[in-house]
Simulated scan of single mutants.
Amino acid sequence: MPNGYVGVEASLPTAYKSPAKKAGSCTIGFQNPIAGNETLHTLQLAVVAQAKVYGCKVIALDDRTTPDKQVSNMQQLIAQKVNAIIFYPLDPKATVPVLKQAKSKGIPVVAIDGTFGSRTAKAPYLPYIATQVWQGRDIQAYLQIKALAAAAPRAKVGLIGIGFPVPALKYLNQREAFWAKKAGMSILGTQDNPSDDVTGGEKAANGLVQRYSDMTAVVGYNDPSAVGASIAARSAGRKITIVGLNGDSAGLQAVKSGKLVATVRVDPVGWGIETTKAAYSLITKQNLPLPKILVRPAELVTKANVGKVASWKAQVAAID
């Protein structure tokens, strides 16, 4: 856990017990929220690599950031009689009927960020998932603001959120605001990235720049948004301190070049390993009952340590 962090995620377990490989094979369904995203593509590679360790194959489907597509993809996996499903809910409530169907068919479902904010959260869909891995949204927000406080104390902050109704990312913005206020910063407002890419980030940041002449910092929900904000700031002739999130290749390069003062590197390889361990444990009935929630803490990356960060590709290659 990050030094100084005492939030809701601080005392959660960070890994499942490793199941032993059993004779026979299995099939795990994996639903990628958007396969073209570098972070989520890395997650998929990690799921595939860890499943291979257990002699299992993976059927991977792209949900295309569309709740309806996510539901139909899960229905497809149920029809294909997979042994377990791993997914990251885009609209948790929309998945309730199909999750209930999976449970009735004896197909355990492992979620990524199925709930958030409280370890005792009760929600309609929670009884239908077997366990979940939190990405650590509160930890991520804490680290983003910690970096911003070091670079720009008392900053006046604009937040960039996602233009899709993804509850976990809306929660991230809430926690960014919480930690910023706790650090003595002012939150001016939030503008959504409509396309989840650099172009959308630039558009969102342009909106913030035009609305807030006194804005001195921007915190983005991902690195493409943060990089887009750096383009918008430069075009407007404004000096704005920017912090990203994900630690993907573009984000790390932006930290190296000084476009971002920091990014928070998430752990898609760890998400993939742990969700697959959970899925295989559920399939083979090992280490039960599993913890209801575990978290994979993130890592703060600045110019001081950006050159020491191991690549996700190397981390996936090391899975065996």
Rank of each mutant, 00 (worst) to 15 (best):
N222A: 14
I162K: 05
L208R: 00
A183Y: 02
Q132N: 04
A168P: 05
G201A: 10
K69I: 15
G4N: 07
V309E: 11
A254D: 02
I145P: 02
W271T: 03
L290T: 09
Y128W: 14
I283P: 01
F116Y: 13
F116Q: 09
N206L: 12
A123T: 08
G7P: 04
I59N: 08
V48R: 13
G161D: 08
D138R: 11
S25F: 00
N32W: 01
P167M: 00
T95G: 11
K292N: 14
D267Y: 06
V157L: 07
S25A: 13
N193L: 11
Q80Y: 05
A155V: 05
A254K: 02
G4K: 02
A79P: 06
L252Y: 03
N3P: 12
Q80C: 12
R296W: 12
E38W: 00
A317V: 11
Y54C: 05
L260K: 10
P124L: 00
T65M: 14
V47Y: 00
P92N: 11
I240P: 02
H41F: 14
I273E: 01
P92D: 10
E38R: 05
P2E: 10
L61V: 13
G207M: 08
L260M: 11
G106N: 13
A278S: 04
S281F: 04
L208D: 05
I273Y: 04
D267H: 06
G200E: 12
P165F: 02
P289W: 01
Q210D: 13
I78E: 08
V47W: 03
P108L: 06
D91P: 09
T275L: 08
V110H: 02
D320A: 14
S230H: 05
K22Y: 04
L290I: 04
I107T: 11
A35Q: 08
G55Q: 06
S118K: 14
S249L: 11
V266Q: 15
I86W: 02
Y221H: 06
Y171Q: 14
T241P: 07
A152K: 13
L282V: 10
G251D: 09
I283N: 00
G184T: 10
I242D: 01
G24P: 14
A35E: 08
D214W: 00
Q286K: 08
A232V: 04
P167Y: 00
P153A: 07
V133P: 04
I231N: 06
I187N: 06
